[in-house]
Computed example of a mutant assay.
Amino acid sequence: MMWLSKLVSFARNRRGASAVEFALISPLLAIALLGIAEVGQVAYQRTDMHGALRSGGQYVLNGGRDLAVAREIIVRSWSAMPEDARVEATRFCLCGSLAHACNSPCSGGSVPEAYISLSAHATLGGIVVDYGDSADDSIRIR
């Protein structure tokens, strides 16, 4: 019967209950914290890519027409540029909603509208897990 009284005494003892509860909850808290960090990292990478495109777009809006310079501005502004990132700067013309050669008039004799397209593509990854999430972003400037 002595062992029974020790078992009852052990069951009634509440010292250390907080430590056990913390041991059960702390893995869940750690996983939640890592999840928040993962989402934050991907959001930062997307924002960084978009900000770099805006820098190139600002160059074009201020009168810059050299596509190589616009591309270089984007590459230099992209602070956390992944290794597989691609940046493209292209010029194209439209007659209405149809693609048209920039050096010839539209069918009605009007001048085609000229645009510059700046685009970026990259595979974004998290801190812990690399999802291989690809992101595309582009802006079109008239």
Rank of each mutant, 00 (worst) to 15 (best):
L24T: 03
I139Q: 07
S18Y: 14
A70H: 06
A43E: 11
L29S: 13
L33F: 09
S119F: 15
A43S: 10
A17K: 00
A135L: 04
S55G: 13
S77C: 04
D133G: 11
R15C: 10
R71V: 05
R91L: 00
S5D: 10
R71T: 04
Q41G: 11
A120D: 08
F92A: 09
S79M: 08
A68K: 12
A99Y: 01
V75F: 14
R14C: 14
T123Y: 10
A30Y: 15
S26R: 01
G125V: 01
I74D: 06
G132P: 06
G35T: 01
A37T: 05
V60P: 01
R140N: 12
V8R: 02
L7H: 04
V128D: 15
T123S: 13
S97G: 02
S9K: 11
R76E: 13
I36M: 11
L29A: 14
A80H: 13
Q45T: 00
L94T: 08
V8D: 07
V60G: 00
H50I: 00
S104R: 14
S134I: 03
M81S: 04
I127L: 11
Y115V: 10
A37Y: 06
A101W: 03
I31Y: 06
N62S: 11
A17I: 09
M49N: 10
S134F: 11
G64H: 13
A122E: 12
C95T: 05
G108P: 15
S79W: 03
S97C: 01
D66S: 08
N13H: 09
Y59S: 05
V75Q: 03
G125L: 01
G125P: 03
P105M: 12
S18F: 14
P27F: 02
M1N: 08
D66K: 02
A23R: 00
C93Y: 09
G40P: 05
G96H: 04
I36P: 00
V87L: 09
L7D: 05
W3P: 07
L4R: 02
R140E: 13
V8M: 11
L33N: 08
S55A: 14
S117M: 15
I74K: 05
I127D: 09
A99H: 00
F10L: 01
P27A: 08
G63W: 14
H100N: 01
S107T: 09
N13K: 03
M81P: 03
R91I: 03
I139A: 09
V20M: 02
S5E: 02
A23G: 15
S104C: 06
Y115H: 15
P82H: 01
S97M: 02
V20H: 00
E88W: 12
G64I: 10
R76M: 07
G108A: 07
G109P: 15
A89G: 01
R14K: 12
C102S: 10
I116H: 05
Y131H: 11
L7M: 05
D136H: 01
V129C: 12
A23C: 02
S97K: 03
L53C: 08
H50T: 07
V60Q: 03
G109R: 02
E38M: 06
G132W: 00
G64S: 06
